[in-house]
Amino acid sequence: MTTAAFLSLLQGAGVTLVLSGAGIALGVPLGLLLGLIRWGRVPVLSPIVMVYVSLLRSTPAVTLCLLIFFAIPTMGIDIGPWTASVLTLGLNTAAFNCEIWRSGLNNFSPDQLEAARSFGMTPALRFRRIIFPQLWRACLPGLVNEMTLLIKSSPAIAVVGVVEITRAATRIGAQTYDPLPPMLVATGIYIVLIVVFVGLQRLTERLYGQAGAAA
């Protein structure tokens, strides 16, 4: 395998990281919003979120990506492969993150909530000052675990033509008629990415997190 081939694999790794990062940046806050809607039993919205979560959790990323990439343009909205990829990864991970946030919220100490309420804190203040600072620490292991799953499902976006690691590897294989070396290198890159993420998870847990069971 040539240096140029290796560099194009690294470029693919960059694309994977940028798109996964954008997906996480979309999916984690969206998941929190959905989790809050479920936790607060917001009328009308809560059942809709329940159906959304159930549906998205059983939809394969590849199918979702194809749906977004081909169906949204028929509604007259122009969408490129990159936007479709970020939407796919973000909407998919938001459903799983919703459940992580929600279980954190369900396990939140009711005593503290009552105390905050009796001090006359508004719901917004209660969330900002009391709930969130503890919640994100409790949810961190689950969220980071979901991020590694997102990276592992990110090859799905190759189906709409985004040249990320997997697609870069098959392209090199098709050019050189020797697919095994680029694929093994690509596999190695994924292993490094995920090991780094798991290491970060252990580190953040030690620094901020509560002693929680990491998956």
């Binding site: 990276i151 090859p155 694929m183």
Partner: peptide, 17 residues
Amino acid sequence: CIPFLMLAYLAYYGLPS
């Protein structure tokens, strides 16, 4: 640590090598 698609590719394109 290996994504499923990567494994499928290895089985489909890599094993013939």
